[in-house]
Design a binder for these strands. Structure first.
Length: 584
RNA sequence: GCACCCAUAGCUCAGCUGGAUAGAGCGCUGCCCUCCGAAGGCAGAGGCCUCAGGUUCGAAUCCUGAUGGGUGCGCCA
C-alpha cells in the first residue's frame, strides 16, 4: 500500500497493534485481518478516522467487540501521533490524530506537487484499455465522445495509480461496412469528375465524403470511371478508410485524446492470425460444428437450421455457443474479435479493459468467454458499457437525426463547449448511467455547473497567491513547504487538510473500481470545502488566507490553500482538464 | 421467451465493494458583501433508498423472487 496514503499508514499501525496483542496473548493467533479497514467516518464529529477491527474480529476471536476495541485503543494511543482512540457505536474505534500529522501531510503535498496521490497500487501491472474503436466510416458523434473521454480518463487514472497502461483503438476496417464506405466514396469521386452521384439506399450520404471524392480524382484522374467495381474497390476502400481514420485522429486530438496503438482488424485477415487464434481454442476442444437452436420468442422469419463452426462459449458462462464461421465458410465478425483479443493476450497484458457502447451489452459474455478461454486465470477482462448521452439546448431535448442534418458530431460538441468542459461534464456521471448534456448549462458560470465550480476554486487560490506575492511573500511550493505550518491550528483549517488527505485513498478506490467519475465528484467536494472555508473568512477574520499584519501566518495559510489547488490540478489532469488561474 | 444494465428527495444524480443519524446540485423559504473574487456561503423544508423475503453484530449496498424502465438476442460489423 502506498506510503503517502495516511489511511493505509494508520491501518498498518492498527494491524501492528493487533499483532502485538496476539503476541502478548490478548488475542488468539491466526486471525484474518483482511477485512479490517481504516476509513474517514461519515460524521466528522466521530474523529479523523475509524476502524472496524473489533467488529470484524469479534466473532473469530470469540470475544466481545468492546473488549478488543479497548485493548486496541490502549495500544494505539501509546503512539503520540494518535491523540485519542475511543470505542463507539457497535464497536467502532474512533481515532483522532495529532495536528502535526496534518501539517506533515500538507508539507508532503507541497513537496510532491501533483505527484501527491500517485499510488503503487498498480505495481506495474500491464493494462490495455481499448476504447472508441468507432467504425472508420464517418465522423465521431456524441456517443463516441463520451466513450473517448471515459477511456482516456480511466487510462490516466490507472497510470496515476501505478499501472502500466496502453491506450488502444481497434479499427474495424475488415468488414462489409468499409466496402460500403468505398462505394459511397466512389459516388463522390464520380461527382468530382462532373457526373451526378447516385447515393443509393444503404450508402453513406454524408458531406464528409465529398473531399474524399475530390482527393480520389486528384490521385486517379478519371481513370477509375469506366472500371468495374472489382477493379477499384480495394484501392478506394484503402484510400477512404485512411481518410476516415485521419479525420477520427483529428477529432480525438481536438478532445485531447492520444492513442498508443491503432490496431487494424484487416491485419488479421489473410495473415493466419485468425486461424492461429481459433487453433488455440480448438486445441482446448472448444470449437465444434453444430446447429444452434432458434432464439426463443423472437424467431426470425427466414430462420432455418444450419450447420456452423461454433465456439463453446457456454463453457464460460455465455448463454449460447457462438458461430465463428458463416455457412459459406467465411468468418463471422466474431472471429476477428477472438483473434484480436488473442493478440492482446499474447502481447502479455495482465488486464484487459474494453469500453463499449451500451447497445453492445450483448457481447459482454462472449468476449469474457473468449478471454477466459484464451488467457485462463492469468488475464482478466473488464468491460465497461457507456450509456447514452442525451443532448439538451435551453433545457429542451435536442433531437438528433442524420437525415434532418441535426446529427451532432464530436467536433460540434467540442467547438461549442470546449474540450475541458466537455470532458469534465462527461465524467460527472457513472459510465452506466445516462448523461444529460445541456449546451447552455455547461457554459454557465454558476455552481450549477460543476466544471465552473471546481475551476473557480482553483482560480480563487491562484488569486490569493497573487495577493500574497504583492505582499512580498515567496509563493513557490518550495518556500511554502517550509512555512510554519504549526500555525494552522483552527479546526476549520485542519478540516480542509483532512479533505486533502483523502486524495490518495480516493485515487485507489477509483482505480480499483475503474470509476473515473469518482475523481470528478471528489473534486467537486474539495472545491465545495474550499469555497465554504473561504466564506468563513467573511465572519472570522482569522480564517482569511491573507493576514496583512502577520506574514508568517499568511504563509502557513496560503500553503494550505495551495495544497488544495495542487490536488485540484492533479485531479483535473487525470480527467484531462486544464486548471484555470482566473475566471473570465 | 431469455440475457445484461438500471430503480435513492418534486427534478438530475452521488453514496468510498457491508458500517454509525442516507448526501449534493437544481427548485422552494429565509439569511450573509465597510470583508483575500458574493461567479460564493449559511440555514430550513423535503425520504417506506420500487416491493417481498434471505444472509449477519449491521444491508441503499450482497443473494433470491416480483414490479417498472433501457439494451440486446444464428450466416450485420
Amino acid at each position: 500500500m502506498d506510503p503517502m496514503n495516511l489511511f493505509s499508514q494508520i491501518r498498518a499501525q492498527v494491524i501492528a497493534a493487533l499483532d502485538a496483542l496476539v503476541a502478548e496473548g490478548a488475542l488468539p493467533a491466526g486471525l484474518d485481518t483482511a477485512n479490517v479497514t481504516v476509513e474517514p467516518p461519515r460524521d466528522p464529529a466521530h474523529g479523523d478516522m475509524a476502524t472496524n477491527a473489533a467488529m470484524v474480529l469479534a466473532k473469530p476471536a470469540g470475544m466481545k467487540p468492546r473488549d478488543i476495541a479497548e485493548a486496541l485503543a490502549v495500544r494505539l494511543t501509546a503512539d503520540p501521533r494518535i491523540a485519542s482512540a475511543e470505542v463507539a457505536g457497535p464497536g467502532f474505534l474512533n481515532m483522532r490524530v495529532a495536528p502535526e500529522i496534518w501539517h506533515d501531510l500538507l508539507r508532503s503535498v507541497l513537496t510532491q506537487g501533483t505527484d501527491y496521490g500517485r499510488s503503487v497500487l498498480g505495481d506495474g501491472i500491464k493494462v490495455n484499455v481499448e476504447f472508441v474503436s468507432a467504425n472508420p466510416t464517418g465522423p465521431m458523434h456524441v456517443g463516441h465522445t463520451r466513450g473517448a473521454v471515459f477511456g482516456d480518463a480511466l487510462a490516466a487514472l490507472l497510470d496515476f495509480a501505478g499501472y502500466d497502461v496502453t491506450r488502444e483503438y481497434y479499427i474495424n476496417d475488415g468488414g462489409a461496412q468499409v466496402d460500403v464506405l468505398a462505394r459511397s466514396a466512389f459516388e463522390r469521386y464520380r461527382e468530382a469528375c462532373g457526373l451526378s452521384p447516385e447515393i443509393r439506399e444503404g450508402l453513406y450520404p454524408g458531406d464528409y465524403l465529398i473531399p474524399v471524392g475530390a482527393a480520389l480524382k486528384e490521385k486517379y484522374g478519371e481513370s477509375l470511371l469506366d472500371q468495374p467495381e472489382s477493379a477499384w474497390l480495394e484501392e478506394v476502400r484503402e484510400f477512404s478508410t485512411e481518410a476516415m481514420m485521419a479525420m477520427i485522429r483529428e477529432d480525438l486530438a481536438l478532445l485531447g485524446v492520444k492513442m498508443d496503438v491503432y490496431f487494424s482488424e484487416k491485419s488479421l485477415y489473410g495473415t493466419g492470425r485468425i486461424e492461429e487464434a481459433l487453433k488455440s481454442l480448438e486445441d482446448r476442444g472448444l470449437i465444434y460444428t453444430g446447429v444452434l437452436e432458434p432464439p426463443k420468442g423472437k424467431t426470425p422469419e427466414d430462420w432455418e437450421p444450419r450447420e456452423q463452426t461454433l465456439f463453446r462459449s457456454t463453457d464460460f458462462g455465455d448463454d449460447v455457443d457462438r458461430p465463428v464461421k458463416k455457412s459459406d465458410g467465411s468468418w463471422t465478425y466474431f472471429a476477428p474479435d477472438i483473434a484480436y483479443h488473442y493478440d492482446k493476450v499474447t502481447r502479455g497484458y495482465d488486464q484487459l479493459i474494453d469500453i463499449f457502447g451500451a447497445d453492445h451489452g450483448g457481447y459482454v459474455k462472449r468476449m469474457k468467454a473468449v478471454v477466459a478461454a484464451l488467457g485462463g486465470n492469468s488475464v482478466s477482462l473488464d468491460i465497461k458499457l457507456i450509456q447514452l448521452v442525451k443532448l439538451f439546448k435551453n433545457g429542451e431535448p435536442f433531437k438528433m437525426s442524420k437525415r434532418a442534418g441535426t446529427f451532432v458530431t464530436l467536433r460540434d460538441v467540442v467547438e461549442q463547449a470546449g474540450a475541458d468542459v466537455t470532458r469534465f461534464v462527461m465524467l460527472t456521471r457513472k459510465n452506466d448511467a445516462p448523461l444529460d448534456f445541456d449546451f447552455d448549462k455547461v457554459l454557465e458560470q454558476t455552481k450549477d455547473n460543476p466544471v465552473f465550480y471546481v475551476q473557480y476554486a482553483h482560480a480563487r487560490v491562484c488569486s490569493v497567491l497573487r495577493r500574497a506575492e504583492e505582499l512580498g511573500l515567496d509563493t513557490s511550493d518550495a518556500a511554502l513547504s517550509g512555512a510554519a505550518l504549526e500555525r494552522l491550528d483552527h479546526p476549520a483549517e485542519l478540516d480542509l487538510a483532512r479533505k486533502v488527505a483523502e486524495w490518495p485513498r480516493l485515487v485507489e478506490i477509483a482505480a480499483r473500481g475503474h470509476e473515473p467519475h469518482r475523481i470528478a465528484f471528489y473534486l467537486y467536494d474539495l472545491a465545495s470545502d474550499l469555497h465554504g472555508h473561504w466564506a468563513k473568512g467573511n465572519d472570522e477574520m482569522g480564517l482569511r488566507f491573507i493576514q496583512e499584519d502577520d506574514l508568517g501566518a499568511t504563509q502557513a495559510k496560503i500553503a494550505l490553500a495551495r495544497s488544495v489547488a495542487v490536488v485540484i490540478s492533479a485531479g483535473l489532469a487525470i480527467l484531462g482538464v486544464t486548471p484555470v488561474e482566473e475566471m473570465r
